[in-house]
Design a protein around this nucleic acid. Sequence first.
DNA 1: CCTCAATTGATAGACATCTAACAGTTAGAC
DNA 2: GTCTAACTGTTAGATGTCTATCAATTGAGG
Lengths: 146, 146
Amino acid sequence: MREGKPIGLLLVQTAKAVSRAFEDELAARGGSRPVWLILLALMDGAHRTQADLAAAIGVRGPTLTHHLGGMERDGLLTRKRLPENRRVQVVALTAKGRATFHKLRQGAMSFDRDLDRRFTRAEMVTLRDLLGRFGASATVGFGPDS
Amino acid sequence: MREGKPIGLLLVQTAKAVSRAFEDELAARGGSRPVWLILLALMDGAHRTQADLAAAIGVRGPTLTHHLGGMERDGLLTRKRLPENRRVQVVALTAKGRATFHKLRQGAMSFDRDLDRRFTRAEMVTLRDLLGRFGASATVGFGPDS
DNA sequence: CCTCAATTGATAGACATCTAACAGTTAGAC
DNA sequence: GTCTAACTGTTAGATGTCTATCAATTGAGG
Protein backbone atom coordinates (compact mmCIF):
# COMPACT_ATOMS: atom_id res chain seq x y z
CA MET A 1 0.00 0.00 0.00
CA ARG A 2 2.27 2.77 -1.25
CA GLU A 3 1.37 6.41 -1.08
CA GLY A 4 3.14 7.29 -4.30
CA LYS A 5 5.17 10.41 -4.96
CA PRO A 6 5.43 13.14 -2.38
CA ILE A 7 2.43 15.42 -2.58
CA GLY A 8 4.58 18.43 -3.45
CA LEU A 9 6.12 16.69 -6.41
CA LEU A 10 2.73 15.52 -7.59
CA LEU A 11 1.40 19.06 -7.32
CA VAL A 12 4.29 20.56 -9.26
CA GLN A 13 4.24 17.95 -12.02
CA THR A 14 0.49 18.24 -12.42
CA ALA A 15 0.78 22.00 -12.66
CA LYS A 16 3.56 21.71 -15.19
CA ALA A 17 1.43 19.56 -17.46
CA VAL A 18 -1.58 21.85 -17.12
CA SER A 19 0.53 24.92 -17.74
CA ARG A 20 2.00 23.34 -20.81
CA ALA A 21 -1.42 22.49 -22.22
CA PHE A 22 -2.55 26.05 -21.58
CA GLU A 23 0.54 27.38 -23.34
CA ASP A 24 -0.31 25.25 -26.37
CA GLU A 25 -3.83 26.62 -26.43
CA LEU A 26 -2.55 30.20 -26.39
CA ALA A 27 0.28 29.51 -28.82
CA ALA A 28 -2.29 28.27 -31.35
CA ARG A 29 -3.76 31.78 -31.18
CA GLY A 30 -0.44 33.54 -31.33
CA GLY A 31 0.03 34.26 -27.63
CA SER A 32 1.83 33.01 -24.54
CA ARG A 33 1.04 32.64 -20.87
CA PRO A 34 2.83 35.76 -19.64
CA VAL A 35 1.42 37.90 -22.44
CA TRP A 36 -2.08 36.62 -21.70
CA LEU A 37 -1.75 37.34 -17.98
CA ILE A 38 -0.51 40.86 -18.66
CA LEU A 39 -3.32 41.59 -21.13
CA LEU A 40 -5.86 40.23 -18.65
CA ALA A 41 -4.53 42.32 -15.80
CA LEU A 42 -4.52 45.44 -17.93
CA MET A 43 -8.08 44.89 -19.16
CA ASP A 44 -9.17 44.34 -15.57
CA GLY A 45 -7.80 47.82 -15.10
CA ALA A 46 -6.52 49.71 -12.10
CA HIS A 47 -2.92 48.86 -11.47
CA ARG A 48 -1.10 51.83 -10.08
CA THR A 49 2.44 50.81 -10.80
CA GLN A 50 4.36 48.14 -12.65
CA ALA A 51 5.14 46.59 -9.30
CA ASP A 52 1.39 46.17 -8.72
CA LEU A 53 1.02 44.62 -12.12
CA ALA A 54 3.90 42.23 -11.50
CA ALA A 55 2.41 41.14 -8.18
CA ALA A 56 -1.00 40.64 -9.79
CA ILE A 57 0.37 38.19 -12.34
CA GLY A 58 2.85 36.54 -9.99
CA VAL A 59 6.25 37.57 -11.37
CA ARG A 60 9.00 39.91 -10.19
CA GLY A 61 9.65 43.36 -11.53
CA PRO A 62 12.41 42.53 -13.99
CA THR A 63 10.34 39.75 -15.55
CA LEU A 64 7.49 42.15 -16.10
CA THR A 65 9.81 44.77 -17.57
CA HIS A 66 11.07 42.14 -19.97
CA HIS A 67 7.60 41.23 -21.24
CA LEU A 68 6.36 44.80 -21.38
CA GLY A 69 9.36 45.59 -23.56
CA GLY A 70 8.43 42.83 -25.97
CA MET A 71 4.77 43.73 -26.01
CA GLU A 72 5.58 47.38 -26.60
CA ARG A 73 7.81 46.41 -29.53
CA ASP A 74 4.93 44.29 -30.86
CA GLY A 75 2.57 47.23 -30.62
CA LEU A 76 0.30 45.69 -27.98
CA LEU A 77 0.78 48.51 -25.50
CA THR A 78 2.41 51.86 -24.84
CA ARG A 79 4.34 53.14 -21.86
CA LYS A 80 4.81 56.70 -20.85
CA ARG A 81 5.97 58.47 -17.73
CA LEU A 82 3.44 60.19 -15.49
CA PRO A 83 4.12 63.95 -15.70
CA GLU A 84 3.41 64.47 -12.01
CA ASN A 85 5.64 61.58 -10.93
CA ARG A 86 8.16 60.69 -13.57
CA ARG A 87 9.16 57.50 -11.76
CA VAL A 88 6.01 55.62 -12.68
CA GLN A 89 5.36 54.19 -16.12
CA VAL A 90 1.74 54.36 -17.28
CA VAL A 91 1.01 51.23 -19.28
CA ALA A 92 -1.91 51.36 -21.72
CA LEU A 93 -3.18 48.80 -24.21
CA THR A 94 -3.39 49.73 -27.88
CA ALA A 95 -6.25 48.67 -30.17
CA LYS A 96 -4.05 45.81 -31.27
CA GLY A 97 -3.48 44.87 -27.65
CA ARG A 98 -7.21 44.76 -26.99
CA ALA A 99 -7.77 42.71 -30.15
CA THR A 100 -5.14 40.22 -29.03
CA PHE A 101 -6.81 40.02 -25.64
CA HIS A 102 -10.14 39.06 -27.19
CA LYS A 103 -8.51 36.47 -29.41
CA LEU A 104 -6.63 34.85 -26.55
CA ARG A 105 -9.65 34.98 -24.28
CA GLN A 106 -11.40 32.48 -26.50
CA GLY A 107 -8.65 29.99 -25.85
CA ALA A 108 -8.40 30.73 -22.16
CA MET A 109 -12.14 30.40 -21.62
CA SER A 110 -12.38 27.17 -23.53
CA PHE A 111 -9.46 25.81 -21.56
CA ASP A 112 -11.03 26.78 -18.25
CA ARG A 113 -14.32 25.18 -19.24
CA ASP A 114 -12.49 21.95 -20.07
CA LEU A 115 -10.96 21.88 -16.62
CA ASP A 116 -14.16 22.87 -14.82
CA ARG A 117 -16.04 20.02 -16.43
CA ARG A 118 -13.83 17.54 -14.61
CA PHE A 119 -15.06 18.50 -11.15
CA THR A 120 -18.42 18.76 -9.45
CA ARG A 121 -19.30 21.90 -7.53
CA ALA A 122 -18.49 20.22 -4.25
CA GLU A 123 -15.21 18.86 -5.54
CA MET A 124 -14.23 22.29 -6.74
CA VAL A 125 -14.82 23.75 -3.29
CA THR A 126 -12.79 20.93 -1.74
CA LEU A 127 -9.98 21.34 -4.24
CA ARG A 128 -9.72 25.08 -3.64
CA ASP A 129 -9.61 24.47 0.07
CA LEU A 130 -6.92 21.81 -0.20
CA LEU A 131 -4.79 23.90 -2.56
CA GLY A 132 -5.14 26.75 -0.09
CA ARG A 133 -3.51 24.61 2.59
CA PHE A 134 -0.20 24.66 0.78
CA GLY A 135 0.05 28.35 1.47
CA ALA A 136 -0.73 28.01 5.15
CA SER A 137 2.79 28.88 6.25
CA ALA A 138 4.64 29.40 2.99
CA THR A 139 2.96 32.56 1.67
CA VAL A 140 1.43 31.45 -1.58
CA GLY A 141 -0.68 34.50 -2.39
CA PHE A 142 -0.32 36.65 -5.49
CA GLY A 143 -2.53 39.61 -4.78
CA PRO A 144 -6.32 39.78 -4.56
CA ASP A 145 -8.65 37.15 -5.92
CA SER A 146 -9.61 39.21 -8.98
CA MET B 1 -20.50 34.97 -4.62
CA ARG B 2 -17.47 34.75 -6.87
CA GLU B 3 -15.56 31.56 -7.46
CA GLY B 4 -12.20 33.26 -7.59
CA LYS B 5 -9.43 32.58 -10.04
CA PRO B 6 -9.73 29.83 -12.63
CA ILE B 7 -8.76 26.53 -11.08
CA GLY B 8 -5.88 26.08 -13.53
CA LEU B 9 -4.35 29.38 -12.55
CA LEU B 10 -4.78 28.60 -8.87
CA LEU B 11 -3.10 25.23 -9.38
CA VAL B 12 -0.15 26.72 -11.24
CA GLN B 13 0.40 29.56 -8.80
CA THR B 14 0.17 27.25 -5.81
CA ALA B 15 2.69 24.92 -7.40
CA LYS B 16 4.99 27.81 -8.18
CA ALA B 17 5.02 28.91 -4.56
CA VAL B 18 5.60 25.37 -3.30
CA SER B 19 8.34 24.76 -5.84
CA ARG B 20 10.02 27.96 -4.82
CA ALA B 21 9.94 27.04 -1.14
CA PHE B 22 11.39 23.64 -1.98
CA GLU B 23 14.15 25.29 -4.02
CA ASP B 24 15.03 27.45 -1.04
CA GLU B 25 15.24 24.41 1.19
CA LEU B 26 17.63 22.69 -1.22
CA ALA B 27 19.62 25.84 -1.92
CA ALA B 28 20.32 26.15 1.80
CA ARG B 29 22.04 22.77 1.48
CA GLY B 30 23.85 23.61 -1.72
CA GLY B 31 21.52 21.95 -4.20
CA SER B 32 18.72 22.65 -6.62
CA ARG B 33 15.51 20.98 -7.69
CA PRO B 34 16.79 19.39 -10.91
CA VAL B 35 20.00 18.20 -9.26
CA TRP B 36 18.00 16.66 -6.42
CA LEU B 37 15.63 14.88 -8.80
CA ILE B 38 18.51 13.48 -10.79
CA LEU B 39 20.32 12.26 -7.69
CA LEU B 40 17.12 10.67 -6.41
CA ALA B 41 16.44 8.90 -9.69
CA LEU B 42 20.01 7.60 -9.84
CA MET B 43 19.93 6.32 -6.26
CA ASP B 44 16.63 4.59 -7.00
CA GLY B 45 18.65 2.83 -9.69
CA ALA B 46 17.75 1.10 -12.89
CA HIS B 47 17.41 3.62 -15.68
CA ARG B 48 18.49 2.11 -18.92
CA THR B 49 19.12 5.27 -20.90
CA GLN B 50 19.27 9.00 -20.40
CA ALA B 51 15.91 9.19 -22.08
CA ASP B 52 14.49 6.97 -19.32
CA LEU B 53 16.07 9.18 -16.72
CA ALA B 54 14.68 12.32 -18.33
CA ALA B 55 11.19 10.86 -18.42
CA ALA B 56 11.47 9.79 -14.78
CA ILE B 57 12.20 13.30 -13.61
CA GLY B 58 9.85 15.03 -16.05
CA VAL B 59 12.17 16.91 -18.37
CA ARG B 60 13.22 16.54 -21.99
CA GLY B 61 16.47 15.07 -23.19
CA PRO B 62 18.41 18.29 -23.74
CA THR B 63 17.50 19.57 -20.29
CA LEU B 64 18.84 16.40 -18.74
CA THR B 65 22.02 16.57 -20.84
CA HIS B 66 22.48 20.11 -19.60
CA HIS B 67 22.27 19.15 -15.93
CA LEU B 68 24.32 15.98 -16.28
CA GLY B 69 27.03 18.11 -17.83
CA GLY B 70 27.03 20.43 -14.85
CA MET B 71 26.92 17.60 -12.34
CA GLU B 72 29.77 15.82 -14.09
CA ARG B 73 31.84 19.02 -13.98
CA ASP B 74 31.04 19.28 -10.27
CA GLY B 75 32.20 15.71 -9.71
CA LEU B 76 28.80 14.35 -8.68
CA LEU B 77 28.70 11.70 -11.38
CA THR B 78 30.56 10.11 -14.26
CA ARG B 79 29.41 9.20 -17.74
CA LYS B 80 30.92 6.59 -19.96
CA ARG B 81 29.83 4.81 -23.10
CA LEU B 82 28.65 1.22 -22.92
CA PRO B 83 31.23 -0.91 -24.76
CA GLU B 84 28.58 -3.12 -26.31
CA ASN B 85 26.45 -0.19 -27.45
CA ARG B 86 28.43 2.96 -27.72
CA ARG B 87 25.31 5.09 -28.18
CA VAL B 88 24.22 4.85 -24.58
CA GLN B 89 25.85 6.79 -21.79
CA VAL B 90 26.15 4.96 -18.49
CA VAL B 91 25.61 7.47 -15.71
CA ALA B 92 27.01 6.59 -12.27
CA LEU B 93 27.14 8.58 -9.05
CA THR B 94 30.50 9.28 -7.44
CA ALA B 95 31.05 9.21 -3.68
CA LYS B 96 30.57 12.96 -3.72
CA GLY B 97 27.32 12.51 -5.59
CA ARG B 98 26.05 10.07 -2.99
CA ALA B 99 27.13 12.39 -0.19
CA THR B 100 25.24 15.26 -1.82
CA PHE B 101 22.21 13.03 -2.13
CA HIS B 102 22.19 12.30 1.59
CA LYS B 103 22.63 15.95 2.45
CA LEU B 104 19.79 17.07 0.19
CA ARG B 105 17.56 14.27 1.35
CA GLN B 106 17.43 15.81 4.80
CA GLY B 107 15.93 18.95 3.31
CA ALA B 108 13.57 17.11 0.99
CA MET B 109 12.25 14.86 3.75
CA SER B 110 11.73 17.70 6.16
CA PHE B 111 9.93 19.63 3.44
CA ASP B 112 7.68 16.70 2.63
CA ARG B 113 6.85 16.21 6.28
CA ASP B 114 5.88 19.87 6.56
CA LEU B 115 3.46 19.48 3.69
CA ASP B 116 2.08 16.15 4.87
CA ARG B 117 1.25 17.60 8.24
CA ARG B 118 -1.25 19.94 6.61
CA PHE B 119 -3.57 17.15 5.48
CA THR B 120 -5.37 14.27 7.12
CA ARG B 121 -5.10 10.81 5.60
CA ALA B 122 -8.49 11.17 4.00
CA GLU B 123 -7.70 14.59 2.65
CA MET B 124 -4.51 13.30 1.12
CA VAL B 125 -6.40 10.59 -0.71
CA THR B 126 -8.92 13.13 -1.93
CA LEU B 127 -6.22 15.55 -3.03
CA ARG B 128 -4.38 12.90 -4.99
CA ASP B 129 -7.60 11.91 -6.68
CA LEU B 130 -8.48 15.48 -7.58
CA LEU B 131 -5.02 16.26 -8.88
CA GLY B 132 -5.25 13.12 -10.98
CA ARG B 133 -8.30 14.53 -12.72
CA PHE B 134 -6.26 17.21 -14.41
CA GLY B 135 -4.54 14.53 -16.42
CA ALA B 136 -7.75 12.87 -17.46
CA SER B 137 -7.48 13.95 -21.07
CA ALA B 138 -4.33 16.01 -21.11
CA THR B 139 -1.70 13.33 -20.43
CA VAL B 140 -0.09 14.45 -17.22
CA GLY B 141 1.96 11.37 -16.38
CA PHE B 142 5.72 11.26 -15.99
CA GLY B 143 6.48 7.59 -15.83
CA PRO B 144 5.77 5.14 -13.01
CA ASP B 145 4.92 6.13 -9.50
CA SER B 146 8.36 5.32 -8.15
C1' DC C 1 29.50 -5.89 -47.74
C1' DC C 2 26.88 -1.45 -48.07
C1' DT C 3 23.48 1.49 -47.55
C1' DC C 4 19.79 3.35 -44.98
C1' DA C 5 16.59 3.78 -41.20
C1' DA C 6 16.25 3.78 -36.26
C1' DT C 7 18.26 4.85 -31.88
C1' DT C 8 20.66 7.73 -28.53
C1' DG C 9 22.67 11.89 -27.02
C1' DA C 10 24.51 16.47 -27.89
C1' DT C 11 24.38 21.18 -29.78
C1' DA C 12 22.26 25.61 -31.03
C1' DG C 13 19.23 28.98 -30.15
C1' DA C 14 15.16 30.69 -27.89
C1' DC C 15 12.19 31.98 -23.86
C1' DA C 16 10.67 32.80 -18.99
C1' DT C 17 12.29 33.53 -14.84
C1' DC C 18 15.14 34.99 -10.97
C1' DT C 19 18.59 38.01 -7.87
C1' DA C 20 21.78 41.74 -7.49
C1' DA C 21 23.09 45.94 -8.75
C1' DC C 22 22.15 50.37 -10.95
C1' DA C 23 19.80 54.97 -12.33
C1' DG C 24 16.42 58.43 -12.26
C1' DT C 25 13.02 60.82 -9.47
C1' DT C 26 10.84 62.52 -5.41
C1' DA C 27 10.26 64.18 -0.89
C1' DG C 28 11.65 64.97 3.76
C1' DA C 29 15.30 66.64 7.30
C1' DC C 30 17.91 69.90 8.65
C1' DG D 1 18.06 75.12 -0.35
C1' DT D 2 20.77 70.98 -0.21
C1' DC D 3 21.45 66.27 1.00
C1' DT D 4 19.89 62.02 1.74
C1' DA D 5 16.67 58.22 1.96
C1' DA D 6 12.86 56.00 -0.27
C1' DC D 7 10.54 54.72 -4.41
C1' DT D 8 10.18 52.96 -9.25
C1' DG D 9 11.83 50.76 -12.91
C1' DT D 10 15.78 48.95 -15.78
C1' DT D 11 20.04 46.46 -16.77
C1' DA D 12 23.24 42.55 -16.27
C1' DG D 13 24.00 38.02 -15.71
C1' DA D 14 22.58 33.38 -14.24
C1' DT D 15 19.47 29.23 -14.33
C1' DG D 16 16.08 25.99 -16.06
C1' DT D 17 13.46 24.76 -19.71
C1' DC D 18 11.98 23.94 -24.46
C1' DT D 19 12.07 22.72 -29.87
C1' DA D 20 14.66 21.81 -33.90
C1' DT D 21 18.52 20.01 -35.63
C1' DC D 22 22.82 17.53 -35.78
C1' DA D 23 26.28 13.58 -35.01
C1' DA D 24 27.52 9.05 -33.84
C1' DT D 25 26.33 4.37 -33.65
C1' DT D 26 23.82 0.26 -34.68
C1' DG D 27 21.33 -3.17 -37.20
C1' DA D 28 18.56 -4.94 -41.01
C1' DG D 29 17.86 -5.62 -46.17
C1' DG D 30 19.33 -6.30 -50.42
